[in-house]
Simulated scan of single mutants.
Amino acid sequence: MLESTIVKSRVIPSISLAAASASMDDAPLYIPPKERFLEFRRQPSARRAGLLALIGALAFFGVWELGHYLTPVSARKFLPSIQEVGSALYVLFVERNFAHDVYISCWRIFISFVAAAGIGVPIGILMGSFGNIRALFNPTLTAWRYLPAASFIPLLLVWFGPTDQAKIALLFMGVIFFLISLVLDNTSAIQKEFVEAGLTMGASRFQILRGIVVPAALPAVFDSMRNMIAVSWTYLVIAEIVGAQDGIGAVMMRAGRFLSVDVIMAGILTIGALGVATDLVFRGICLMLFPWNAERRS
């Protein structure tokens, strides 16, 4: 009796294992769903993102080149080819000291933006932190946002004349009011529990502002600054349109008088390249200062 029990105990597990193995062999294999191109909120890998960016750039330049050759020969000078624009860019840098104009334009952009950020960021943080300050300034600043900066050109020329001060003031006015509004929203988005915890622990208003509000808002504030310096580049040609002797906008305006479309497009490409370089610099600064924010957003 004992021997039969031992034999059964040995046979039954072996039979169970064989049955499980057979059932696993018969079970269908799991095939993960195919990744679709239009997938909600899914970030591509770095390699795929670079490949897609390259395809997008090639598509843009391909449409440009195709448009040039589809244009009638008599009108092709108004839509020059990529090669013609590249040649104009080479001539500008090698023969016409275009690097000096690029330097002057960059200097105007960064000086005006530093001034706008130095004033706008503290005001936006204070408005987002204290309701009374927001009620005091927000209605007026909201109205200023709807005034086009280009409409102040005659007034700035009267005040400063055709000088660098007028151009820097125009670039400053084109950025500061929108920057204040964005920083206000960034500060208001901080969870109120953080501030309440500081008050509960007996922190003063200055300590809460310096130790809680500012560190919590800074990643979003840097993103807002990155977006607004892009807007500043869009105002460059407008700022350099009147009375400018140097700068990228001045070169483009002189080229427009002689219908040198290749030079105009070379200036546009230069502004675009400088804007992308500025954006990459801001991204690098944000990554160094707030690495946890980059990981959270990815």
Rank of each mutant, 00 (worst) to 15 (best):
F172V: 08
A189E: 09
T200L: 14
A189K: 08
R145E: 10
D185M: 12
T200K: 03
P154N: 09
T140I: 13
N138G: 04
N186H: 00
F152E: 07
W144A: 15
Q165F: 04
P154E: 07
L155C: 03
S129D: 01
P154R: 11
G161F: 09
P154Y: 06
A143K: 05
R145D: 10
E196S: 14
E193D: 14
L147I: 14
F178V: 13
F177S: 11
F137A: 13
W144V: 15
S204K: 01
L179A: 04
F172K: 08
S151E: 01
Q165W: 04
L155D: 02
M201A: 08
A149N: 01
Y146F: 13
I176C: 05
L171K: 06
M173H: 00
V175P: 00
G202R: 03
R205I: 03
T187D: 01
V175D: 02
M201G: 01
F194D: 04
S188H: 09
W159C: 10
I168F: 00
A166T: 12
V175R: 00
N132I: 14
D164S: 14
A203D: 12
S181P: 00
N186D: 15
L157S: 08
F206W: 12
N132E: 02
L141M: 10
G202Q: 06
L147P: 05
G174L: 06
F206C: 06
F194Q: 15
A169Q: 04
T187H: 02
T187E: 02
G128H: 06
E193K: 09
L184W: 01
A135H: 04
S188M: 13
I176Y: 00
Q191C: 08
